[in-house]
Design a protein around this nucleic acid. Structure first.
Length: 717
DNA sequence: AAATTAACTTAGCAGGTTTGGA
DNA sequence: TCCAAACCTGCTAAGTTAATTT
């Protein structure tokens, strides 16, 4: 059964070809109104990325200061520098120990083997060469010509030892968050009307009104829940006078505000090059100042150093809290996390942080509590950072460990289908779904706080329909529910008789809104998984099945004889199989039909061109036969080349069309970034001679640097 | 043992930027 | 050189899981 997920082909596209039977008519149109809020004027910078890579002199001071401070607190760093040089590639393994030391071959460092070095506080780890990186930066500054390309020596954290216990870092210094720009009151000629009469709003009320005005074009501002929530929260910001006057949202006229913002955004687009450049430069400056931190001697990129600006909350799907006011975050809301001996970030003048703490058992730099759900938000590091990379690597190692014992686990749950205990049967069937269908665990959620979505353990009777027989197949289960992000999961799956019978049993005497697995929750399930394999949880199955599927599909679909575009098509198809398995859907791009048409037009044109070229070739040949001179021979050759070139172009276009059509409502990004062991892709590239750049863009290569560096062509997941 | 909280991963979309073909 | 399309990045919501509290 391993890796057999072909049935999933039908789950996404209601109208697609290999999907004869089910005609569900997209009753869940949730995607249409998914969060489209944040309208703000984000002039984004062209991010420069990468830790330790080229930086300019503006940054030098900061750097040098770091260098000095680091030197002070750690005089040893230089000496340690080359410590790992001699390590050989083949010997790298997850725990950084030479393979032969790991007798059983199972051991993975993250699975807390006996910490051979309890003295981690003084371990040499991470204490090498910030200096080296910094030097490079300088070299680039005056090196000029090759400045950008310079293959910087990057820090290979994966060649170093890792912390074995809960410690995440020993040194952490950063500049704190960047706050949202303060509210700028509207010019007085932009008016708000209530019941047809002009009304000047107080600044507080006006700001919230602008949030609504900016969203006016979105469908969701017409939704009852949205309007109700918005109006309630808006009133809280009004003066008592406003409160008594403004009693009906329907009488509010935001159109001038809305027009004003549209005009603003037009004006922004129409800015001159210089103005745009200036903004870009300013963003770059902010990035350089706030976008990096120093963690354990290395300068690392921060993922989200800007605090989320205030606005109206738009949850995904049918969210009960849509329209509520997301309040502005102030320094007094902010908790700073950094090391004691670092230069603490300073709050803006006249303000204070809520707290400064020094917790090196966590990875975040800044946190605050958000007011909609009361949850905590964090500022953390970029995926290219050591701390994220190690975790990612660890995740795939866990999935590979599952690979080794998945047969045993499968045998086990199949056995459990027969258990006399209901809770065990439920657990076993749920696990079967998680394994076979890559469903998420499915925690229970507080009703009325969030959109009504489910995962495996929280499935309800109403989400399944059992078909004794359907389309010539026996024991078909039809799933139809909203999962994470209110993305619909629709699938018809033939299951084993025993599973089917169990489901009938679980559904007996229940109402549609009752839990399918009433004796099970994620905590019980994960505890059980923990017993089956150390560190095993429900989500590991998703990672495992995704990665193993990619590997299998790549093996099946690709031949070394193919040319590169064909190989890439195959790669995308393998990636697509995973995305389908994981139900990673997207709304078809708004311009899909049109762009498809355009492409078809191009293809037709190219076909004509090809026909013409062939005709010309033919006549040139005939000509050459008669004339038998050099010149006409040459002409034949060039015509031949032309035909070839056009054929190639045509092929490319056709491949593109296929790829695009197949990808209409499937999102590849999520699986690529989160579920597929990058070493599989790296190995595949090496084996088939496909440049890695064709598979991973710059950002992705930074995130997966560890895999690119360590995977050889024979890597096996 | 249930509920809550904290930390961290996973998710799709908007909209800007770059690319490549006419 | 222009334009559509592809690509990419930021954004932030929504999950999972483990730890902690009640």
């Amino acid at each position: 059964m391993s890796g057999d997920h072909s049935h999933n082909d039908s789950q996404i596209d209601s109208g697609s070809r290999h999907n004869d039977s089910h005609k569900h008519k997209d009753k869940y149109k949730d995607k249409e109104h998914k969060h489209k809020d944040h309208k703000k004027d984000k002039e984004r910078e062209k991010s420069k990325y990468s830790n330790s890579e080229h930086r300019d002199s503006s940054d030098k001071k900061h750097r040098d200061k770091d260098k000095e401070r680091l030197k002070l607190k750690d005089g040893s760093s230089d000496k340690q520098k080359d410590k790992h040089k001699e390590k050989k590639k083949e010997e790298r393994s997850f725990d950084g120990k030479p393979k032969k030391e790991k007798e059983n071959g199972f051991e993975s460092p993250f699975i807390k083997s006996e910490p051979e070095n309890n003295d981690f506080y003084h371990s040499p780890k991470h204490e090498k060469s910030l200096k080296r990186e910094l030097k490079k930066g300088e070299a680039v500054t005056d090196g000029k010509k090759k400045a950008k390309k310079e293959p910087e020596e990057k820090w290979k954290w994966w060649e170093e030892e890792r912390y074995t216990d809960g410690v995440k870092w020993k040194f952490l210094e950063h500049k704190g968050p960047v706050f949202a720009p303060p509210y700028e009151p509207l010019p007085s000629n932009v008016k708000f009307y209530y019941d047809g009469k002009h009304m000047k709003l107080s600044p507080g009320a006006e700001e919230v009104a602008t949030f609504f005005a900016k969203m006016l074009d979105h469908e969701y501002t017409t939704k009852d829940v949205f309007r109700k929530n918005f109006f309630k929260d808006w009133r809280k910001e009004m003066t008592s006078e406003e409160k008594s006057k403004l009693t009906d949202l329907n009488k509010c006229d935001f159109s001038e505000m809305s027009e004003y913002f549209k005009a603003q955004s037009e004006a922004r687009k129409a800015m001159t090059k210089e103005e745009k450049l200036k903004i870009k430069a300013e963003n770059e400056r902010i990035l350089q100042e706030y976008g990096f931190c120093v963690m354990d001697n290395h300068k690392e990129r921060i993922a989200n150093f800007r605090i989320e600006p205030p606005g109206l909350f738009r949850g995904r799907g049918d969210h009960p809290k849509m329209g509520m006011l997301k309040r502005r975050i102030r320094p007094e809301d902010i908790i700073i996390n950094c090391s004691k001996d670092s230069n603490h970030p300073k709050p803006p003048p006249g303000t204070k942080w809520k707290e400064v703490r020094h917790d090196n058992k966590v990875t975040w730099l800044v946190s605050w509590t958000e007011n909609i759900q009361g949850s905590i938000k964090y500022i953390m590091l970029n995926p290219s950072s050591r701390i994220k990379g190690e975790k990612d690597w660890q995740k795939y190692e866990m999935a590979r460990r599952l690979k080794k014992c998945v047969d045993r686990i499968r045998a086990q749950y199949r056995e459990d289908w027969k258990s006399k205990e209901m809770r065990i049967r439920q657990r076993a069937v749920a696990l079967y779904f998680i394994d076979k269908l890559a469903l998420r665990a499915g925690n229970e959620k507080e009703e009325g706080e969030t959109a009504d979505t489910v995962g495996c353990c929280s499935l309800r009777v109403e989400h399944l329909t059992l078909h004794q027989e359907m389309d010539g197949q026996e024991y078909v289960v039809e799933f139809d529910f909203l999962g994470k992000d209110s993305i619909r999961y629709y699938n018809k799956v033939p299951v084993e008789k025993r599973v089917f019978k169990n489901l009938q049993l679980f559904m007996e005497d229940k109402e549609p809104e009752d839990d399918l697995f009433d004796r099970l929750n994620t905590s019980i399930l994960n505890k059980h998984l923990q017993e089956l394999m150390d560190g095993l949880t429900a989500k590991v199955f998703r990672t495992y099945n995704a990665s193993i599927t990619l590997q299998q599909q790549l093996n099946e679909l690709t031949t070394s004889e193919d040319n590169v575009p064909a190989k890439i098509l195959s790669y995308n198809r393998a990636n697509r199989a995973v995305a389908v398995l994981c139900n990673h859907q997207r709304a078809p791009p708004k311009t899909f039909e049109k762009s498809m048409q355009n492409l078809q037009t191009k293809i037709d044109a190219k076909k004509e061109q090809l026909a013409d070229a062939k005709r010309e070739l033919k006549s040139a040949k005939a000509d050459a036969k008669v004339r038998r001179d050099e010149k006409s021979k040459k002409a034949v050759e060039s015509k031949k080349k032309a035909v070839q070139r056009i054929e190639e172009q045509l092929m490319k276009l056709e491949v593109q069309a296929t790829d695009r059509e197949e990808n209409k409502q499937i999102a590849l990004g999520t699986s690529k970034l989160n579920y597929l062991d990058p070493r599989i892709s790296v190995a595949w590239c090496k084996k088939l001679g496909v440049p890695i750049e064709k598979i991973y863009n710059k950002t992705q290569r930074e995130k997966f640097a560890w895999a690119i560096d360590m995977a050889e062509k024979d890597y096996e997941f």
